[in-house]
């Protein structure tokens, strides 16, 4: 009888431990989104990606549709090449959509925001996004404002 109880307690302990590990995997970490790597790949070239990191979200209209899976440098053109993995559910994104690197909040992390274009042909695996907007770099912005103010011109409405 005592032996049965002992075995029962040990069994419960092991189940509890494994349950805790599963909980950590499923509820706490991003394992749920790891399975989505069946997404199709699209690349985009940026002059400057700021603080963008691999695994950053890719959104359209605020909805998460994929994530950044790779960041490389084109050694000839000195441009950053960002590879995005887009959820195959969203397979009708216009080919001329544009990508920008945005920041969530003042100190938040950076992500890639897509802006849909108007073409009928859709993005597919291996496509390249032609229209891109680099990350806003605070120092450059401030520097430009200062020079503009000094020359007396109004600051441009939009950074190129």
């Amino acid at each position: 009888m005592a032996k049965k109880n002992l075995e029962l307690a040990v069994g419960l302990f092991v189940v509890l431990g494994l349950a805790a590990l599963f909980l950590l995997a499923l509820k706490v970490s991003d394992i749920a989104s790891l399975g989505e790597d069946k997404g199709y790949r699209v690349s985009a070239r940026f002059e400057n990606i700021g603080g963008l990191k691999v695994r950053a979200p890719v959104t359209l209209g605020g909805v998460r549709i994929g994530r950044v899976v790779g960041i490389d440098l084109d050694p000839q053109r000195y441009e950053a090449v960002v590879t995005l993995s887009i959820d195959p559910r969203y397979d009708h994104l216009p080919e001329d959509s544009s990508a920008s690197i945005l920041t969530s909040g003042l100190l938040g992390e950076q992500y890639v925001g897509l802006e849909p274009g108007g073409m009928d042909s859709a993005l597919k695996n291996g496509s390249t996004l032609k229209l891109t907007q680099s990350a806003l770099v605070l120092e450059k912005l401030i520097g430009r404002m200062v020079t503009n103010a000094a020359s007396g011109d109004p600051p441009p409405a939009k950074t190129p």
């Binding site: 590990l21 950590l24 995997a25 509820k27 706490v28 970490s29 991003d30 394992i31 749920a32 989104s33 790891l34 695994r55 979200p57």
Partner: peptide, 20 residues
């Protein structure tokens, strides 16, 4: 609370490396 956690805690780099 949960959404931010799930977005920032990575399974392989954090859970597998740390806990396991």
């Amino acid at each position: 609370f949960w959404a931010q956690m799930q977005a920032k805690v990575h399974f392989f780099t954090d859970v597998v490396n740390g806990v396991v």
